Simulated assay, not measured.
Amino acid sequence: MNNKASFLEFIGGRYVEILELALQHIQITGIAVGFAILIGVPLGIMITRYRNTSNLVLGIANVFQTVPSLALFGLVIPFLGVGLTPSVFVLFLYALLPIIKNTYIGISNIDPSTIEAGKGMGMTGYQILTQVEVPLALPVIMGGIRISTVINIGTATIASLIGAGGLGDLIFKGISMYNNNLILAGAIPTALLALSMDAILGFVEMMLEPKGRRKMKKTFV
């Protein structure tokens, strides 16, 4: 009981700092995922048109996922220095694969007869893409964005090691000082942030589902 009370008192005394670091954390993650969307979605669309490049593009994106995040942060320091820029760049690389892959899968799995119907109506390739393919693939694309965001919120804690700030500051400070209150003050808000974003983006993903498919899911449930 005393431990619980002391932790709550600790949080109460540092809530301003925790809030500031949480906002930094959101900023780092938001910028990285934003850039990943701007690059990843067009790349995913491109490899549906040039399928012989899909293995190469997905393979390169997959390489960044396999490199340990701490090592990747260290590798970019000689080129980009420390702070926000290298942190955003590394998180951007980690966010790419789910977005590219889900865009590719979402568009590739559209019923070919739907595309043919669009062509039969005289739609141009651009119109088919923007009015048929992307809207139908949007729930799957949103799933990739959701995965990237949640992964990046956790990975962004490591960014504090190269001076980017965020909730990782509290975690690593707590580890160096053997202070569990500091560790929890960074870890709990990070977990809550990840869960909140997962729920919000999950709701958006569900709302983007075609109505017929949503009804079908409810029927099976």
Rank of each mutant, 00 (worst) to 15 (best):
V76T: 11
L72Q: 10
G83Q: 03
L84D: 06
F64Y: 05
F73M: 06
A71M: 04
V82N: 08
V82S: 13
T85W: 00
S69E: 06
V63M: 02
S87N: 09
L72H: 02
V90Y: 00
T85M: 14
G81Q: 06
L93E: 06
P68L: 13
L70N: 10
F79L: 15
T85H: 01
L70S: 14
F79R: 14
L91C: 09
L70W: 07
V82L: 13
P68V: 09
F64I: 07
L80N: 08
V63H: 03
F89S: 15
V82I: 15
L80P: 00
V82K: 11
V88T: 14
F73E: 04
F89K: 10
F79K: 15
L72N: 10
Q65I: 14
V88P: 01
G83T: 06
S69I: 09
V63W: 02
F89D: 11
A71K: 03
G74A: 13
L91S: 08
Q65E: 15
G83K: 00
L93A: 12
L84F: 15
V88Y: 00
F92I: 12
F89R: 10
P78I: 14
Q65N: 14
P86A: 14
S87V: 10
S87L: 05
L91V: 12
F79D: 13
S69C: 00
V88A: 10
G74L: 00
G81F: 01
T85F: 04
L84P: 07
P78E: 14
L75Q: 10
V76F: 01
F73P: 02
F64W: 01
A71P: 06
G83V: 07
L84C: 11
F64A: 05
L75S: 11
S87Q: 05
L70Y: 09
V67K: 03
L93V: 12
F92H: 08
L72I: 13
V88W: 02
G81S: 08
G74N: 05
P86Y: 03
Y94S: 07
V82D: 05
P68D: 11
S87R: 01
F92P: 05
F79P: 12
G83I: 08
I77T: 15
G83M: 02
P86S: 12
P78T: 14
G81H: 01
S69F: 01
V67A: 04
S69R: 03
I77G: 08
V67G: 02
T66I: 11
L70K: 00
P86W: 02
V63N: 04
V82Q: 11
A71L: 09
G74E: 03
V76C: 09
P78Q: 14
Y94A: 05
T66E: 09
F79C: 12
V90E: 01
Q65M: 13
